[in-house]
Simulated scan of single mutants.
Amino acid sequence: MIGRRHVDLVRQREYCTSAGPRLKSRLSALLHVIPRDKPVVYFDYPVHGNVGDLLIHLATDRFFHEHGYHVARTFSWRPRGRHARRVPSDATLVFHGGGNLGDLYPGHERLRQAMLERYPDHKAVIMPQSIHYSTPDARDRSLAAYARYRDLTICARDDVSRDLLASYSDIGHLMIPDMTHQLEDALPAVVDRTRRSDALFFLRTDKERDEQRSARFPEMGAEDQSWDWERLLTARDATWIQRHNTLHKYLYLANLDRVAYETWSGYRARILRRALALFQGANHVYTDRLHGGLFALLTGAPVTLADNNNGKIGHYHRTWLSGHPDVTIRD
C-alpha cells in the first residue's frame, strides 16, 4: 500500500558522485529477516517535526517499494480497538528505526512493547536503531522484555548497540547502517561544490545536545547562524502536524490507516524538499546531528561531525564512516 507521493523526491536526478562507502548494499540483509512473500505492518512512523526521522521514513518506503514488499497497514501511533485486531495473521511487524530504543524516548518504547505483547506469535523486526539506556536497571528490564519474543530481530546501527544486544543471547539481532543510505544516488546532489557559497552549522537544541560542542566548531563566527530542525519548520508546519495527528486518530478508528498515511506523506515531502534545499546550498556542513551529516553526504557536501551527549554520532562514525573522504569528526 506504499503510496507514490514520495516519488517526486527520489525519481531520477543528478547523482551524487561521492567516492565514499556504498552502504546501501548493506541494507539488503533485511531481506533475510523480512519475508517478501508476507505482508508488512509498519508501526511508529513519524508525524512530527524531526526531519531526520522523516528522512528515515522516506528511505524505508523506498526500500519496501524497490524490493516489492506489500505494506498492508501503517500506524504512526499505537493502534487500539478493532482496527488493531485486523493485523494479518501472517504479517511481519516492522517498527520504525532511528535513535529511540532505550529509555530516552519512552513513548516509542511503550508502543513497541505493547504491540509485541499483543502479537507475540508474529515475526517482528525493529529497523536500525542506536540503543541507549540511562541506567543498568532500565537496560536490563527493557532487553529482558525483548528477549521473551522468539521471532524478534532488532537491527543495531552501530557496533556498541550490536555488542549490547549480543550480550543477551535470547535476542535475535543484526548490524546494518541507518535506513537513510537507501537514498544513495536518489536525492539530487550539487556535484560542483564551487557553486555553493556558505557553510551550514546544523546543531542540536534538544536534550541530546552536548554543551561543549561550541569548542568543537571554531569555524563558526559570531555572524554565523545555527540551524536545527525546529528552525527549518514554520508555525504553519506545527499547526498542520498537529492537525495530521488528530486526523490520524479518527481515520484509524474508521480503519482508514492507508488514507492517513497517504495524506501525511504529501506533507512530509514538502518538509523534506525544504530541508534538501538547505543542505544543497552548503559547501560544508558542521553538525552534531547524525541525519544532518547523512543529509549532507546524500547531497554531495563534505561534513564535519561532533558527538552528541550519548555518543551515538561517534559510534556511527567508527562503525560505518571512518575513512570516508568527505567525513571528519571532532573529539
Rank of each mutant, 00 (worst) to 15 (best):
G292T: 07
H173F: 11
D151I: 01
H70D: 08
G98C: 00
K249M: 10
V87C: 07
V7D: 11
V10R: 04
A29P: 04
L152A: 04
K312V: 06
A166S: 13
Y286G: 03
G323W: 00
Y42M: 08
R231S: 03
G266C: 11
G293Q: 00
Y105G: 02
L23M: 09
T328A: 10
C16G: 07
H6M: 12
H65W: 09
R5V: 11
H324V: 00
V51E: 08
G266L: 13
V285D: 06
S322G: 05
E208V: 05
N283K: 15
E117Y: 07
L297W: 00
D185E: 09
T263F: 02
A215Y: 13
R110E: 13
G49C: 03
R274S: 14
T299L: 07
I171A: 05
R268W: 02
L272M: 12
R330K: 10
N50Y: 13
V94T: 02
F217H: 10
A114F: 07
R330V: 15
R273W: 11
R73A: 13
D170K: 15
H57F: 11
R22D: 09
R36G: 10
N50A: 06
V191W: 06
E184M: 12
A189V: 08
D257Q: 15
R318M: 03
T287M: 09
D185R: 11
R213Q: 09
D158S: 08
R236K: 14
P106C: 07
V47H: 00
L93Y: 06
N255D: 15
W229P: 08
R26A: 15
A72I: 01
N255L: 10
A144W: 03
I126N: 05
S226P: 04
V41N: 05
